[in-house]
Write a protein that binds this DNA or RNA. Structure first.
Lengths: 268, 268
DNA sequence: GAGTCGGCTTGATCAGGATCAAAAGACGCC
DNA sequence: GGCGTCTTTTGATCCTGATCAAGCCGACTC
């Protein structure tokens, strides 16, 4: 089965979609065909560990992009699930809600990360994904990704790893929410952000927060005032310099120590 | 590729395993071959939604079981990852830990649930799984499961749903940890347990807890004293009857209401 | 440049749950 | 059956972070 016929069969199965993905003229398609193999994110994103040939296959199904302005919603809970999204640029938050009005930011996502996997289980998204700045995502039609995984098992294997990594990440958040105090949570948050930015070639010690104090608080299970106070405390202690959304980490080691010292087990 | 050759090729790739899975004499194999299709859990477990033929394929790779006594560890963080485990009987807890000594029960698992997916991302388990009562699991060699998914894409698709469901479940725990008060957390915990037991044909209103107050507390981000007090409070209010590990839900509706009324959004 | 608005900081007070402590109840082991 | 250990309950007190409240800063509009 050629990649083209694969795409067409998968496409025809999607006719009548109530929320059609934007389509591109044939002219643009060629250009996009080379997308993954030339993308500066290929070392972080879905193509990681794939051979040149396998990436070419992947490019056959990732032929649509979607741009979002700051504040726009990529998908929301209840939307039918069809695609995963690989973030090409920008910054997102994922927000889950209970049947009653409670909600929580379950995570922040940046370039190279794959989002939307919450939707697979019920063929419906179970949380919202909102752009925190102007962003662009590559649309990865999920049925095509599964079809392709049969042709290129390495891709399937890699996808399993990505999903598993998400599960492990969430374990970390659970540990944070269940056993850390406010300042430890913020320290963990900053270190995590720093490390992910560094992995993408940005400064590990100086960055601009894309989210508000309230959103940080929602993610960390704290109120915005507590987040603000913890920022101020870190600054007074000389560990960081904060000015609004601009953060500079002055003493990474002390931030780390803050985490490893708390050490209060729930079992011993 | 026949199912047998599939099994053998995958098996040979695993020679030299430092922790060999128990193997069975050929005589027992035949008996076990019929396992999945006759298992009373086939409506809850991995075979859900598979055709008769596909289940037969699945049975080719699920030919080992492992028994654990109460308190025994199925796997622990750092162990090499090779297999997933489908719980055939019994009850497990999963425990994650930070580099320093903090730990947290990330979930409780019962018959029909698939565990071990945390290990896929780094080919190493990242949390511990411990039997809370005498239990039995079916060993699902992961590389074989992936190979089989190529032959039977429906199985792969189902597996994706299982992983996605785990992600969604964890979102729920994050919501609980991040935005609920102590009594709401316990109510949510009891309702969740009740619902899962009911799905397996057990009573939804009367059951025996397999875990201690401390383990419940660790999972809910509470201290054991707080868990105990919340139990007492529910009992005083007439919603449940508790005697040690024996729980009887007397007024399910009031328990539910306890959840839907708290309703304190972090955003609005 | 004045005015407005959303986001942030800081202070004062309050309360939910942690902590410390003690005793009672269950359970396994000789 | 008696002993020792683990688990649970309950009480008293403390502390962290929530809540309430006020003012500030910066960005944007007009």
């Amino acid at each position: 089965m050629s990649a083209d016929s694969l795409r067409n069969s998968a496409l025809s199965a999607r006719i009548g979609s109530p929320v059609p993905e934007p389509t591109l003229a044939a002219g643009n398609l060629v250009k996009l065909k080379m997308a993954c193999s030339h993308c500066h994110l290929r070392e972080v994103c879905l193509p990681v560990g794939l051979t040149r040939e396998q990436i070419t296959l992947l490019e056959q199904i990732v032929y649509t992009r979607r741009r979002l302005k700051k504040g726009e919603t990529l998908y929301r809970a209840g939307d039918p699930f069809r695609s995963l999204y690989a973030i090409r640029s920008g910054f997102f938050k994922a927000r889950a809600a209970t049947p009653d009005g409670r909600d929580q930011v379950t995570g922040f996502q940046m370039a190279g990360e794959l989002i939307g996997m919450d939707g697979i289980s019920h063929e419906t998204h179970t949380c919202d994904s909102i752009a925190l700045e102007d962003s662009e995502v590559c649309v990865v039609p999920f049925n095509m990704l599964e079809d392709l995984s049969v042709q290129a098992p390495a891709l399937g294997h890699h996808f399993h790893k990505v999903m598993s990594r998400e599960i492990v990440r969430e374990h970390g958040v659970m540990l944070l929410l269940g056993s850390m105090r406010a300042e430890e949570r913020l320290a963990a948050f900053l270190l995590n952000l720093s490390q992910r930015l560094a992995a993408r070639g940005f400064s590990a010690t100086e960055f601009v927060l894309r989210m508000t104090r309230e959103e940080i608080g929602s993610h960390l299970g704290l109120k915005l005032e507590t987040v603000s106070r913890a920022f101020s405390k870190f600054q007074d202690d000389g560990m960081i310099a904060v000015k609004q959304k601009h953060v500079q980490i002055l003493e990474m080691e002390r931030l780390r120590k803050l985490l490893t010292n708390g050490s209060r087990s729930t079992h011993d």
